[in-house]
Amino acid sequence: MAAPTVTTDEATSVEATIATLNGTLDGDGGEACECGFEWGKDVPYGNTTPSESKTAGQTFSQPITGLQPKTTYRFRAFATNSAGTSYGTIRTFTTPARLPTTTINPATGTSALNGTLDDDGGEACDCGFEWGETEAYGNTTPAQSRRTGQSVLQTIGELLPDTTYHFRAFATNSRGTDYGADRSFSTPAALPTATTDPATELGAIEANLNGTLDGDGGEACDCGFELGLDTGYGTITATESKTTDQTFSQVIGGLVPNTTYHFRAFATNSSGTGYGADRTFTT
């Protein structure tokens, strides 16, 4: 009875976490042999597959699982009969990266986008965000290199007031790109801006105060005037609801003849109140 001879063939179906090991029993030494593989990251291997009964000229294979992405493994075939065990030459294979996975976190404030790289798939990933007013996004932030467990943060600017934005995280490695779920945030209205226009239709005891709402900050504003004998004002007129570029006026009466008055326009929305410059008129 002779010892068997065996060849270690190339690994096939190599993925990020699985592979198939292959061998050929060249000579069985005169009886059926138990054939399998030793494998691991280094020698000594540390892992042995189940064996199969084979005779001369037959091939044998064993799938292995639980591999790590982007890792090199060593393996060799073996064949055992009553005369002993023979080994094929050592071969290697390297698993590819796995597709990364990401988590999208709530936006911080109204301009800081947050995400976490849950799994880099075995290699550093380029991570960032897609964002826009719809789920078609249309904008992409610069990418940052991240590894598993690291957070991704990007601050975006030039947002419109009182607008809802959608965003999602992405992570790209050599296997492809993974996207986090869609999230959204809404920007608040901006502080409005108003212009105090000259008073008109001046009389001894009345006048017409005028203003222009230059910017409503994204929502309709309540617009009116403050009036008084100095810049402490003291009197507030009724208000009108206006939007950007609309004018507004208030007729005031009960004034004192031959008297100088100060006034200024104001506009209020949910973010606060904006004021025009101080103006004067004399009855």
Rank of each mutant, 00 (worst) to 15 (best):
G109Q: 13
G115E: 03
L159C: 11
Q246T: 11
N139K: 10
G128M: 08
G254D: 12
L21A: 01
S82T: 15
S241R: 15
L99C: 04
T85H: 12
T65L: 08
R146C: 09
P188K: 07
T102L: 04
T94R: 13
G121P: 06
A16P: 02
T65D: 14
T239C: 06
L191D: 00
T110K: 13
A143S: 15
T140M: 12
T283W: 08
E158V: 09
I64G: 09
T259E: 12
L117P: 00
F185E: 02
P4Y: 05
T243D: 03
A16R: 02
D42G: 13
T148V: 10
C33N: 04
F129S: 03
Y45D: 07
A181N: 10
W39H: 02
G218F: 02
N269C: 10
I236N: 10
W39M: 05
E10M: 13
E34A: 14
T110I: 15
G27W: 01
S186I: 08
Q154T: 05
L255T: 12
A56M: 05
I205D: 10
A32Q: 12
S186T: 14
T172D: 09
G122M: 07
G88H: 00
F281D: 02
V152A: 07
A56P: 01
T55F: 10
T24R: 05
T148G: 14
K242Q: 12
F281N: 03
S53N: 15
T141I: 14
T148N: 11
S61H: 04
F167E: 05
F37W: 10
G234N: 15
P198L: 06
T95R: 01
T282E: 06
P106T: 12
T103H: 11
T283Y: 08
I90L: 14
T283F: 06
T134V: 09
V14G: 06
R76D: 10
N114Q: 15
T193D: 00
E226K: 05
N47I: 03
E133Y: 11
T282C: 09
G218V: 01
G232S: 13
S184Y: 04
S249N: 13
R146A: 14
L99P: 02
G254H: 07
S53Q: 15
C223L: 04
P63C: 11
G217Q: 00
H166W: 13
T140E: 12
Y165E: 05
D119H: 08
D119N: 15
G254N: 09
T108R: 11
A171R: 00
